[in-house]
Design a protein around this nucleic acid. Structure first.
Lengths: 137, 137, 137, 137
DNA sequence: GTGGTCTAGACCACA
DNA sequence: GTGGTCTAGACCACA
């Protein structure tokens, strides 16, 4: 991804946080999975190359490579000799809403646990979420 | 500890998940911090002993000890030779709502990121949260 | 590591005594702090890796790791993924003499208490200190 | 030691610091040894009872008791049924200066190590020691 | 009974 | 190669 394309800069496809306790390769895997489930990454879509990703997110190439390899092993990505990896046609065309709700459930549980221990109310959370959904990023 | 005995007993003070990517000692630290901020663990409260915690959550005592030591270094816990550690009197009397909202913000961001990538709507999240807030645990 | 090899090698950076009542990890923390305060360990300096330290001082790696982690929490050390930890740039550029004198004060008090109880005179102490300052180690 | 005697308050015989990394019973043992070696506690001197000491220094009686027992085992203290323990006649009547210098040596080494790492000079130490020797306590 | 320190050793994320 | 986490278990100081 060269400077020009970054200047135009559609918002980034993924959000990787090196400081997080969640390993970077895990963050990437989770995000690809979700975007495939929702159809935002339809079958056939080419992902950025390992090197592009590594440069874009200033992350070690082996980290990206590890995520891609695991997604390939899972059947979600497909290797194409000499060409970028693509979203596989055969698996999880499009998750049902129920399936996708299930994927978000762990985050809901973590949030509600924190909210309870902080003695916050449902309304507080609703407001924070509304605000966050409105943000660009 | 089977389900029946847990039902009879008081609900657990903390929720520790060994399978999580978040280290167990970090989970405990975060939860103590939040419950102190909300006043659910007021100054002077004695925490379960290292050994009790270790037994209750089937975790190694040194893991609990690590969390307690870090909380002591932070000033949140106070050592009492030969007696259980207690919530320190001097720090963070009671967090304001604004302070507590800030503590929950990272969880909100993680949830909203996941929801977007899964193409879920604000209403979906609101429903899941309402349901989760209603649960006993 | 026999005496000869130690003579040939650079003098050790730290002195860790497992037999002391002061925990090893505390000894290391104190020494790093002091050498940072005096500028003997300037910002950016790489510390020996956990494994090197453990081998050099024949101490368990987790003991070294504990010291490093606490120094990181304190802001004195900086983690560099996959690379050795370094002295953090941002904290305590260089302690003033007054600040450093304060750090040595507890040792002065312990020495003087002992000297008094042993009925030694100031001159005795001065002589011992002069001699010790002259030693290589 | 009743309130009256404390009001008159000769300076305390010992200095015990509960917060120190050195165990309290060790501190007491070291101090008794030194004062015996210097003749400040001559043979036959009665030490305060375990209870008096515990009250005076607000320390657990078992801690004092442990120190006394170890000093007795060492031959320095002598048990007298129903009466206070006394400094034993038979051992170490009076240490020579050389012997006493040897006892203070570890403190000299700790101080000089710290001073070197803090990049302090001999003169700095001499000044601090002179000041400390002048203090009442 | 309480917490603290340390070891030996396994396994993980990352460069 | 780097550091981080965790376990199992020993031993210690203190109440």
């Amino acid at each position: 991804m060269d400077d020009r394309s970054r200047a135009r800069s559609a918002p980034r496809l993924f959000i990787l946080q090196p400081a997080s306790v969640v390993p970077i390769y895990r963050q990437l895997i989770d995000q690809v999975r979700r975007m495939v489930a929702s159809g935002q990454l339809p079958p056939g879509t080419a992902l950025p190359s390992v090197r592009e990703m590594a440069a874009e997110y200033t992350v070690n190439p082996t980290t990206i490579s590890k995520a891609y390899s695991l997604l390939e092993a899972e059947g979600l990505l497909q290797r194409n000799r000499g060409k970028p990896m693509t979203i596989s046609a055969r698996r999880r065309a499009n998750g049902t809403v129920a399936q996708r709700l299930k994927q978000v459930q762990p985050h809901v549980e973590a949030l509600v646990l924190a909210a309870r221990q902080l003695d916050l109310r449902e309304e507080d959370l609703a407001a924070l979420i509304r605000k966050q959904m409105g943000e660009d990023t």
